[in-house]
Amino acid sequence: MTLADFVTEIGDSGPVAVQGCRTRWDVGGPLDPSARLVTAPSGIVDYLPEEMTVTVLAGTTVAELNHALLARGQRCALPDRHGTVGGAIAVGENHTEVLGRGTLRASVLQVRYVSAEGKLVTGGGPTVKNVSGFDIPRLLTGSLGTLGLIGEVILRTNPLPATSVWLDSVDADPFAIASIVLRPGAVLWDGTRTRVLLEGHAPDVAHDRTALGGCGNWTEADGALDLLPHRWSLTPAELRSLNGNFVASVGVGTVWRDHPQPRRELSEPVRAISERMKANFDPTGRLNPGRSVC
């Protein structure tokens, strides 16, 4: 399947939605059953490690992309939740290691998507730096396919750190890590246990490890803490007053819990802009009907 086939298949009328691996199918509300389901093309179109960019079709799985990047010593900002690249971008959530990898939104350089009118539209550009026109990639990322159906993206990649290690402690203050470690890859905390990802050149990691010794006893761990199913978005300061079951990304504000976050209301002017945005991009409401970011 090519991008052109994807355009044809979506066409210019009738409710339609893209399905990837359906791992995040319920985010933004249940899909209207009238929607016709299409799948996006898959495959890596062009990978330029020396440019730190990769052009990838939306139906490619994140795992497949990561595999290709790993082979050239690179990584990206997409979280791997067993889904597709298009799905990850449509949902817009950051990687657990966002401190080290950067935000997903900053990594999407160009999007090519099918509009409600059935046209292939390009936003952004292929270079790592670009302020040519309004930032359509930022708008489409996290829009749950309500403004356009993503077929292909160009992503920024980054070199893998020379070394990395997860450390675990039950007596450390997670909020003190930022003043000890210059650039941690992640700081996770479940209320008792703190798990820190150190990455970089070996001497720096060793230095950080020694420095961390001043604030607790640490043992090596084989990865991140196990996350809970429901993702919350809080301010970094709000994490201090958490209780119950949770895993929090300290310094970021993302929290994984066993129950969903209460609906976050948009302010009236923001709601008005969002509604106009939806109406301007999808006047007939055919894209992912039933789902909403609001």
Binding site: G92, E93, L139, L234, S249, T254, S267, V270, A272, S274
Partner: peptide
């Protein structure tokens, strides 16, 4: 003439990324 706050201090503010779009507007 309305006043709005785009984005927020939380990790992943709700809604479209209007803050991200506004920067460079």
């Amino acid at each position: 003439g309305e006043i709005a706050v785009l984005g927020g201090l939380d990790a992943e503010p709700a809604g479209y990324d209007l803050r991200g779009v506004f920067v460079g507007g």
